[in-house]
Design a protein around this nucleic acid. Structure first.
Length: 565
RNA sequence: GCCGGUGUAGCUCAGUGGUUAGAGCGACGGUCUCAUAAUCCGUAGGUCGUAGGUUCAAAUCCUACCGCCGGCACCA
C-alpha cells in the first residue's frame, strides 16, 4: 500500500479566464504532484472553480445567462487550459450538489460542537453594486462605483474563530512548516497573537449561494464555502487530509487561520501545510485588467510550448516571492538554459555516441569527478525541491550540466576518437558514458518540471522504461545500461528568435482577448487606452518634438536646487 | 503610523566577522569543432544604500537616516 499525497490549488474565481498567475500556481502544483508520484506515492491534484458570489450573479445576468450556465462556461475555460497544458487534475465546482452537502454537513458539525452562533452583522454595503465593502467606515464611498455606502445590519450566523487562538498558535509552534515560507508563518503568528474576532459566515440578502440549513433565507458567505471544496473533492476517500494547499499570498490568512479553525471545530484532521507563493509581475508592475497588462497562458503555450514556460516560471522566480515576467527574460532564460544548456548537451553527447560508438552506450564507470558532482547535484536538487525552492533545485542541476560541458572540452572526445589505442579509447568511453549518465539523471529529475521534453530526451537516450515510473529516490550513478542503443536524435529545445516569438504571441493574444471577452459578456474590448501614446494632461504644455541622439549630445543638462523663489 | 524584511557587478542573485567580494545571464575579445551561430577560455564592470559606532579585523554586528517590499480581519 503506497503512501498517498493530496494537494490542491485554490479554486479559481470565475470572474475571469486563466491568466499567468493562476497558471503559475497550477503548473507548480502539477510539478509538485509529479515529483511526489516519482517518489512512489499515490497522488491527487485537485483544482476547481469558485462560483458563488454577487459579482458572478451580476455578470451572468448582464450576459443574459443563469449564474450556473455562466459559471459552467468559465469553469470549462479553466479545465480547457489545464487540459491543454496536459495537467491531470480532479475538478471541483462550488455549485456541485456534493459540495453543497459537504458545506452543510460541516456547518452542522461545527454547530453541534458549539462553534456556531447567531448574531448581528453590521457593515458597509453598496446598494448600487450590491457589494459588501469590508473595512469601510459609515458613508465611505464604494470602491467600485464611488457612491456612498450604507450601513446594513442583518441577522447572521457567526463562526467562533476567537475560540481557536491558543490552538492555532500551538499548531504553528508544533508544526512550524504548517505555513511555508517561514516569513509568511511569522505574519500569521503575529496576526493571531493580535486576537481573533468571530467570523460572519452567512448572508441573508444574497441569492446565488449555498443555503444554510436553518429557518429563513441564508446562504454561506465566501470562506465557509470556498475552502470546504478541498474536503468535498475527496469526501469519504483516503486522501483526506490534504498534504499541501498551494495558494497565492493574498489568500494566506484564510487558509492558515480560518481553514484549520473550521476543521478543528468539526473534529476533522488538519492539512499538512499551507504553501504560499508570490505574484507574478509583468515588467515590474502588478498585472491587472485595468492596466491591460494581463499575460494570458495560451499564447505562450502555443508559441513557446508548455515545458519551457514551466521551466522559466520555476527557475526564474524564487517560489514565495513576487517575480517578474518579461518576454526578454523568458526568451533569454530558455535560450541560455534549455537550448544552449541541456538541449545542446544532449545533442552533442548523443551525436558523439552515434558517431564514435555506433549508437550504443559505451561500458564505463564514468569519470570520478563527474559521478561525484552528479551525486551531489541529485542530493542538492532533492533537498531544495522538497523545500519548494525550485529555483535553487534547478540551479544545482545546471551547475552539473556546466561541469559536463567543461569536461567534454577537457577530454576532447573528437581527438580521442582518432587515436586507435586502448587508453584513449577507454577515456572516450569514460567521457561519453559520464555525459550520457548525467543526462539520464538530470532528465529524470527534471521530469516533474518538463514532463514532455524530458520524455523525448529519455527516448533519445534509448531508455525503454517509462520516465514517469523512474523513482527519483532511487537514482544512483551507473544505472545507465552499457550497450543500450540510443534512439533517434532530434533537438528538443530549439533556440527562440525574440522578435518572431513576440510577434506571434501578440497575434494569438489578440484573438484570445476577443474570445474571452465574449465569454465574459463584454462587448467592447477593454484596456485599449494603455496602448495609446502618452498625452499631457490639460494645462501642461504639449511635448516638443523628439530630438535625435546627435542633437542630444550637444545638450548641456544641469541640475539645480531652487533655494528661493 | 506600528511591526517585519530588504538594499552587493548592466540584470537576477549567492555570500551572517578574517586572505586581493563571488555565480549565472547580458556585453566584448579569443578558441575548439562533437553540438541547436552551441561549448570552452579570457576581459570589462562593484567606495557591498548613506552616515556614524563596536572590533586587531565588517558586505557580514549595533545605531540613525534614505529607498524599496510585505503584514496590520473577511482582498476567492
Amino acid at each position: 500500500m503506497s503512501e498517498k499525497f493530496y494537494l490542491t490549488t485554490p479554486i479559481y474565481y470565475v470572474n475571469s479566464a486563466p491568466h499567468l498567475g493562476t497558471t503559475y500556481c497550477t503548473l507548480a502544483a502539477d510539478t509538485i504532484r509529479r515529483y511526489q508520484a516519482m517518489l512512489g506515492k499515490e497522488t491527487l491534484l485537485v483544482t476547481g472553480s469558485d462560483e458563488h458570489s454577487q459579482n458572478v450573479e451580476r455578470a451572468a445576468r448582464k450576459k443574459g445567462q443563469s449564474p450556473y450556465d455562466f459559471s459552467t462556461e468559465l469553469s470549462n475555460e479553466f479545465k480547457r487550459e489545464w487540459d491543454l497544458f496536459e495537467i491531470p487534475y480532479r475538478f471541483i465546482r462550488t455549485s456541485d450538489p456534493r459540495h453543497h452537502a459537504t458545506v452543510q454537513w460541516l456547518f452542522e458539525r461545527c454547530r453541534a460542537n458549539g462553534y456556531i452562533t447567531a448574531g448581528t452583522y453590521t457593515g458597509q454595503y453598496c446598494v448600487n453594486c450590491e457589494l459588501y465593502v469590508n473595512d469601510a467606515e459609515a458613508g465611505d464611498p464604494c470602491p467600485d462605483c464611488g457612491r456612498a455606502t450604507e450601513t446594513v445590519t442583518e441577522e447572521n450566523y457567526f463562526f467562533k474563530l476567537s475560540a481557536f487562538e491558543d490552538r492555532l498558535l500551538k499548531l504553528y509552534e508544533e508544526q512550524p512548516e504548517f505555513v511555508t515560507p517561514d516569513y509568511r508563518r511569522n505574519e500569521i503568528v503575529s496576526f493571531v497573537k493580535g486576537g481573533l474576532r468571530d467570523l460572519s459566515i452567512t448572508r441573508s440578502n444574497l441569492q446565488w449561494g449555498i443555503p444554510v440549513p436553518v429557518a429563513g433565507h441564508h446562504v454561506f458567505y465566501v470562506w465557509f464555502d470556498a475552502l470546504i471544496s478541498y474536503l468535498t473533492a475527496v469526501r469519504d476517500e483516503h486522501y483526506w487530509p490534504a498534504d499541501v494547499h498551494l495558494i497565492g499570498k493574498d489568500i494566506l490568512r484564510f487558509h492558515a487561520i480560518y481553514w484549520p479553525a473550521f476543521l478543528m471545530a468539526a473534529d476533522l484532521p488538519l492539512p499538512g501545510k499551507i504553501v504560499a507563493h508570490g505574484w507574478i509581475l509583468k515588467d515590474q508592475v502588478k498585472m491587472s485588467k485595468s492596466r491591460g497588462n494581463v499575460v494570458r497562458p495560451e499564447p505562450l503555450r502555443q508559441v513557446i510550448g508548455a515545458d519551457p514556460v514551466r521551466y522559466f516560471l520555476l527557475r526564474d522566480i524564487p517560489f514565495g516571492q513576487d517575480g517578474n515576467f518579461s518576454y526578454d527574460s523568458l526568451i533569454t532564460r530558455i535560450n541560455a538554459d534549455l537550448a544552449n544548456g541541456i538541449g545542446n548537451l544532449a545533442s552533442r553527447t548523443l551525436t558523439m555516441i552515434r558517431q564514435y560508438r555506433g549508437g550504443n552506450i559505451p561500458a564505463s564507470q564514468g569519470a570520478a569527478e563527474i559521478s561525484a558532482a552528479a551525486t551531489d547535484a541529485v542530493a542538492a536538487y532533492r533537498v531544495s525541491f522538497e523545500k519548494y525552492e525550485f529555483n535553487r533545485a534547478l540551479e544545482s542541476l545546471w551547475t552539473l550540466i556546466g561541469a559536463v560541458d567543461k569536461a567534454i572540452v577537457a577530454y576532447q572526445p573528437w581527438t580521442l576518437a582518432k587515436k586507435d589505442h586502448p587508453e584513449p579509447q577507454a577515456k572516450l568511453d569514460e567521457i561519453l558514458y559520464s555525459a550520457a549518465e548525467v543526462i539520464r539523471l538530470a532528465t529524470a529529475l527534471l521530469h516533474p518540471v518538463m514532463p514532455d521534453a524530458t520524455a523525448k530526451i529519455w527516448a533519445q537516450l534509448g531508455m525503454t522504461t517509462p520516465i514517469a515510473e523512474t523513482r527519483i529516490d532511487q537514482l544512483a550513478w551507473g544505472q545507465l545500461p552499457a550497450g543500450q542503443a540510443i534512439g533517434e536524435i532530434a533537438p528538443v529545445f530549439p533556440r527562440l528568435e525574440a522578435a518572431k516569438v513576440i510577434d506571434r504571441i501578440q497575434e494569438i493574444d489578440d484573438m484570445e482577448v476577443d474570445r474571452i471577452n465574449v465569454l465574459l459578456g463584454k462587448t467592447e474590448a477593454p484596456a485599449e487606452e494603455v496602448k495609446q501614446p502618452w498625452a499631457p494632461p490639460p494645462g501642461v504644455a504639449p511635448l516638443a518634438p523628439e530630438i535625435t541622439i546627435d542633437d542630444f549630445v550637444k545638450v548641456d543638462l544641469r541640475v539645480a536646487k531652487v533655494l528661493t523663489a
